[in-house]
């Protein structure tokens, strides 16, 4: 029988919804137990939130000053130790999980399943490769713990009516001092978080400047949507990096995705393939984005967006 340990992701004392998505993925294994590990400076409040996630047995906490920031070199030895007795250790396929989990896998001497998108059985999974242009079924050995990052866009968040037990864990591990946190410059935004928003509007190179993104923000606010961007828009400095959607940015699955002035390169499309409805607005009728859009409109975004905002 499987026993799954999920590594909680959190920031500023808030549990990230990616954790509840990992729980959904773990539930597909029909495991004997799903536990969550919270590593933090003060883990209690985060653990209380994690305890509400449906299907969770126990929330394990390690409160240590060293855990104030999510440094993989500090967290990995603790996770590797806590993994003892578990058949599976899952983390989210966010920058947090991508940084941490391979370090854990190597400490345990096993490979890792990256971007797990479907559970076939306890040791077989599907995952995307080549920017999502192929899906491969992979099998992890049955006699070793399965370390995986969960592609969060592939799983809904588990419900929040649970009441798991919370238990402090005393891990006797020495932590290195060679890695030190300096600062986090967070892209402060009052808009819904890209990775959980049910509606997202993204702008591409066509916007031409950071100033021009105003038309996107304005429509987003009308729709209560999160705002994303193509790599070209980020590279050009119109918007910060945390807004990039795609293979090397965020993989998202909103109910509604509106791509504005984005051509639809495969690296961008791989980030939005799981969206419910994709709307594309582009002046080029041959733009590849129209090949996957559910609703397409050819025209000048600077004319269309104000009209659309007025019509809604």
């Amino acid at each position: 029988m499987s026993k799954v340990l999920i590594i909680a992701e959190h920031l500023d004392g808030q549990l990230n919804p990616s954790t509840a998505k990992c729980v959904s993925a773990a539930a597909k294994l029909s495991p004997q137990a799903i536990d969550i590990l919270v590593l933090a400076e003060q883990a209690d409040a985060i653990a209380a939130d994690a305890a509400k996630i449906d299907g969770v047995g126990t929330v394990l906490t390690v409160s240590r000053a060293e855990n104030a920031q999510p440094l993989a070199a500090i967290l990995a030895p603790q996770v590797a130790k806590a993994a003892d007795g578990y058949s599976h250790v899952f983390g989210p396929s966010t920058t947090f999980g991508k940084d941490l989990m391979p370090r854990v896998a190597a400490l345990l001497g096993v490979g890792q399943v990256s971007d797990l998108m479907e559970v076939i059985d306890a040791h077989s999974f599907k995952r995307p490769i080549y920017a999502g242009n192929a899906i491969v079924t992979v099998t992890a050995p049955a006699d070793a713990p399965v370390i995986a990052t969960v592609r969060t866009a592939s799983f809904p968040a588990a419900g929040s009516n649970g009441s798991a037990a919370v238990q402090a864990l005393d891990l006797d591990v020495e932590l290195p001092g060679h890695t030190r946190f300096v600062e986090l410059k967070a892209g402060k935004s009052d808009r819904p978080d890209l990775q959980t928003a049910s509606r997202v509007i993204s702008g591409g190179r066509a916007l031409g400047s950071g100033e021009a993104f105003k038309v996107i923000y304005s429509l987003a606010d009308k729709l209560g949507a999160g705002v994303g961007a193509s790599r070209a828009a980020v590279d050009a400095g119109y918007v910060p990096n945390d807004m990039q959607v795609g293979q090397t940015g965020k993989i998202i699955a909103p109910e509604l995705y509106i791509a504005v002035g984005i051509s639809g390169a495969i690296q961008h499309l791989t980030g939005i393939k799981d969206a419910g409805t994709i709307v594309a607005i582009n002046k080029d009728p041959d733009a590849p984005i129209f090949e996957i859009a559910d609703i397409g409109l050819v025209g000048d975004l600077f004319k269309i967006l104000p009209e659309l905002e007025a019509a809604l």
């Binding site: 890792q112 242009n133 192929a134 079924t137 992979v138 050995p141 994709i278 609703i295 397409g296 409109l297």
Partner: peptide, 30 residues
């Protein structure tokens, strides 16, 4: 061969959608 690769398949295709002519058509479709 830590993580053994088996069957490969193309990603599920998204059906081609509709093209609308103007903003009114877009709002209707939404």
């Amino acid at each position: 061969d830590f993580i053994a690769a088996g069957q490969h398949e193309p990603p599920p295709a998204r059906a081609r959608g509709v093209m609308v002519d103007d903003v009114a058509g877009l709002v209707d479709a939404l």
